[in-house]
Structures are given as structure tokens and as C-alpha cells.
Amino acid sequence: MAEKKLKVPEDFTWRNMEVGNIITEPGNASLRKTGDWRSMRPVLDKEKCIKCGLCWLYCPDGAVKLLDDGYYEPDLFYCKGCGICARACKKGAITMIEEGEK
């Protein structure tokens, strides 16, 4: 997969637009950072987490990723901060905090 880019590169001009703005390379939506207009951020407390995967199931953006150690963690590159995972978690393992807070 191509490197995640935050901006359209300067050398991509109007001449590079495909007819009708069609995207011929499938799956490149994953390159787009959708996490940069978030105002709240989910924070996972692994002490409380029982690895049930409900947050992963409920996230409307598929932003929760499964880690190698079996925990589920919001990926802040994509997470929009909606708070659904925090609501869905039965163990209170996810807390929403204001962006900018530590």
C-alpha cells in the first residue's frame, strides 16, 4: 500500500484528474486522514478491557484496529471522535477526552 499522505501532492494537477473524477485505484480511501477534524478523542484503558471487540464492531468508520496482543484500539489517523465505541464498551474501558487534553 502507498504511504499515507496528508495532502494532495503539488505535482498532482488538474491534468492528472481522471475523466469524471473516477478513481481507478481501488481502496485508496485508506490514504486519507479522516481524524483531523476530531474534537473528542477515545482513550483506551487496557486494565479494564476484556478484548470483547464490541468497540471494533460498533465503530461506524472501521477506525478501531485489532492489535497483535489481542486488544482493540482506536486508530487516531481515522477516528472522528464520535464516541460510539465508548458508549458500546460494557466495561467502561474507553473514555472520551477533549482533544488538546493530555
Partner: peptide
């Protein structure tokens, strides 16, 4: 039609255009 939708050749028609791309799309 070169870009006809085809399950064997997936592509996206009608994606949204962020401010970084909309002007280029209109110029084209």
C-alpha cells in the same frame, strides 16, 4: 465506455472532492 463499472475491475465513481481537489476537478 472505458470506465464502465465492472466487479472484475473495481473503481470508484462519484467520490467526494475535498477542497484540495475540487478546483482541479472543475478545471479539468
Amino acid at each position: 465506455y472505458q470506465f464502465a463499472l465492472d466487479p472484475d475491475k473495481p473503481m470508484t465513481h462519484g467520490a467526494f472532492g475535498i477542497p484540495d481537489i475540487y478546483s482541479e476537478a472543475k478545471k479539468a
